[in-house]
């Protein structure tokens, strides 16, 4: 078994409205950052897991994301393994 560290980024899909991101964007505008065009708020997970090899770790992480960490109806995700 080897230990892997994964970083998982979850964001709302492009097609889904992000009311929180919109509000933060407006706050940036009111702070004077007029050039700020777009902002999406997301979630970030750090996962430490033990697995036989990198492939097994990737498979497990994909399962974790699709079962629990991510609601794939509205969210998309990226996994970075190290």
């Amino acid at each position: 078994m080897k230990t892997f560290n994964a970083k998982v980024n979850v964001t709302l899909k492009k097609s889904v409205l992000d009311p929180q991101g919109q509000t933060v964007l407006e706050a940036l505008h009111s702070l004077g950052y007029k050039g700020t065009e777009n902002l999406r708020v997301g979630k970030y997970f750090e996962v430490t897991l033990n697995a036989q090899d990198e492939n097994s770790a990737k498979t497990q992480l994909k399962e974790m994301c699709e079962k629990l960490l991510v609601n794939t109806v509205i969210e998309q995700y990226e996994v970075h393994l190290s």
Binding site: L12, V16, L17, D18, P19, Q20, T23, N71, V73, I74
Partner: peptide, 17 residues
């Protein structure tokens, strides 16, 4: 029920937050 897949779709934060 939405998370369990018994109904379709999902919930977002209220637009007013």
């Amino acid at each position: 029920l939405l998370e369990a897949g018994l109904l379709p779709g999902a919930m977002l934060a209220n637009r007013s937050l």
